Amino acid sequence: MYQKILDTAESLFMNQGYEATSTRQIAEALGITQPNIYYHFKKKEDIYVAVMRELADEVGSQLQEIAKENGSTLTEKLTEMMVYLQQRHPFDFYMMMHDMHYALSKESSQELYLLWQQSYEAPFVDVLKKEDVFLRSGVQAELAVKQLFILLAAYLQPDTYDKQGNSFPAAIDMFLYGIVKK
């Protein structure tokens, strides 16, 4: 039942956000009572943190594998990573960041932010820090990755119009090389 709770909660949290999802909704979706949920978790925040831990482990591992692949251009590699995120873990980036900063306890927020950095951001940073990628002087890979997520956040949302990731290559190319002809 523990895993079923996490799977159901993941879907609800990623589509509705933390604040809009209740333990009652999770229980109803599973056809159980709320006390059944509280047998496994003390409170809703514990469910959210467990969901995010599980996702971070899986996503981080897969993104690292993609980042290590050889033979792809920078645009292709970043596209493959973003398409993976879109297909495996569609989420509203802004809602998730809001939930992490304002809806959770300080301890949970700090834990999830570290998970985010390690599992979601770090593989992208690793790609940008490779020796064959030359960032402009003064551009830090960590800040560039944060900007990449902000730029592509709309494509990561659940039920986005482009489930195949067809818009990623053009968006990533514009991010990397700009839009103005020199």
Score class of each variant (00 low, 15 high):
E80R: 00
I37T: 05
M95G: 09
F134D: 13
Y113R: 15
N70K: 15
G71Q: 06
E121N: 14
Q3P: 06
N15W: 12
Y120G: 03
Y48F: 13
R53K: 15
V125T: 10
G138R: 06
S22N: 14
M97D: 15
S11P: 07
Q110N: 08
D99S: 11
A170Q: 09
S137G: 07
K42F: 00
E65Y: 01
I32M: 04
Q25W: 03
L152W: 10
L115I: 08
F168E: 01
A20Y: 10
T8C: 04
K68F: 05
K130L: 10
I150Q: 11
P35G: 02
S22E: 08
S105I: 02
I47K: 03
F175E: 01
K181W: 07
T21H: 08
A9E: 04
D132Q: 03
M82P: 02
G31Q: 00
F168D: 02
K146N: 15
S11Y: 15
D132R: 02
Y38K: 12
K182T: 12
D126H: 08
K181Q: 11
Y177P: 02
S167M: 14
Q62E: 13
F91H: 07
G165R: 06
V139P: 04
V127N: 01
L176F: 06
T23M: 15
T160I: 06
A56N: 10
I66M: 00
R88Q: 06
S137P: 07
E69S: 03
L156C: 01
V83N: 01
L112I: 10
D7M: 01
K163S: 14
A56Y: 11
L12A: 11
A29D: 05
D162W: 02
L135H: 05
E80D: 02
Q164G: 10
Q25A: 05
F168H: 03
F93Y: 14
M96G: 03
E65F: 02
E28S: 11
Y155S: 08
L55H: 15
Y18T: 10
A50G: 05
Y155V: 02
D92S: 09
D159E: 12
E131L: 10
H98T: 10
M52L: 12
L176R: 08
R136I: 06
F168K: 03
N36K: 14
Q110K: 12
K129L: 08
L128A: 00
K43M: 14
D7S: 05
A20K: 11
D99K: 03
S109V: 07
M100Q: 12
W116E: 13
K129Q: 11
Y102R: 09
V133F: 05
S22L: 13
Q157S: 11
D46A: 07
A56F: 11
Y84A: 01
G60V: 06
L112S: 04
Q86V: 04
K181N: 08
L55G: 11
S167E: 13
S137T: 09
H98S: 09
L85A: 06
